[in-house]
Simulated assay, not measured.
Amino acid sequence: MPKRLRLTRRFPAAMTNDAYRALQTLAAQAGITQDEALTFVFEHFNSVIDAETFNHRLRLFKAELEDRKA
């Protein structure tokens, strides 16, 4: 029997316009809500990321953070 989808955890999340558009696109293409899209991505995180490039992309993102905050 599949696990029931109960969205019981809520948190205020801030994201860039690019990230929000990507979330909207994912949800629209999949025919699900944005909440369901985020749930899917995090429940299946290890299978939806490219493990070979993840650490490199994370390092680049962290290196740019200060410049992006300005």
Rank of each mutant, 00 (worst) to 15 (best):
F61D: 05
T33I: 02
R21N: 10
L26I: 07
F42G: 01
V41P: 02
F42P: 00
A30W: 04
L5V: 13
M1L: 10
R59V: 12
L38T: 01
E52T: 14
S47C: 05
I49N: 07
I49V: 09
L26Y: 09
R10P: 00
K3E: 13
Q34P: 03
V41L: 10
D35G: 04
A70V: 13
R6F: 09
L26M: 07
F54H: 08
F54W: 15
N46Y: 06
R10N: 12
Q24F: 04
L60E: 15
M1A: 14
A22W: 05
D18T: 14
A28Q: 13
A28P: 00
L60D: 10
Q24W: 05
A37R: 02
V48Y: 04
A51H: 11
A30C: 07
L5I: 14
I49W: 01
R9W: 03
V41G: 02
M15H: 04
Q29F: 05
A63I: 06
A13C: 09
G31M: 02
N55K: 12
A30K: 08
S47R: 10
L38I: 10
L5M: 11
D67H: 10
L7P: 00
T16M: 04
A19V: 01
A63E: 15
K62D: 11
G31W: 03
R68H: 13
K69V: 13
T53F: 04
L5S: 11
P12H: 09
D67M: 09
H56M: 14
A14G: 13
D35I: 05
I49L: 01
K69H: 13
R9M: 05
N55C: 02
Q29L: 11
K3Q: 10
L60A: 09
K3F: 06
T8D: 15
R9V: 12
Q29T: 13
G31A: 01
F11W: 08
S47E: 15
E64D: 15
G31F: 03
T16R: 05
Y20M: 11
L5W: 03
R59M: 09
V48C: 02
T33H: 00
A22Y: 01
Y20R: 14
A13V: 15
D35Y: 09
V48D: 02
P12G: 09
T39D: 12
F40Q: 06
D35P: 07
A14Y: 12
E36W: 00
P12R: 13
S47I: 11
R9I: 11
R59G: 01
E43H: 08
R21L: 15
F40D: 06
Y20V: 02
D18P: 06
A70E: 14
N17Y: 14
F11Y: 09
F61P: 00
N55E: 15
D35C: 07
L65M: 15
Q24Y: 04
F54M: 07
V48R: 02
V41F: 06
T8C: 11
R59Y: 08
F42A: 00
P12A: 11
Y20I: 03
A70S: 14
T39K: 09
R68M: 13
I32R: 01
I32M: 04
A19G: 05
R9Q: 10
R10Y: 08
A37P: 02
R4A: 12
L60S: 12
R6A: 12
L7C: 03
T25W: 10
F11M: 12
D50Q: 04
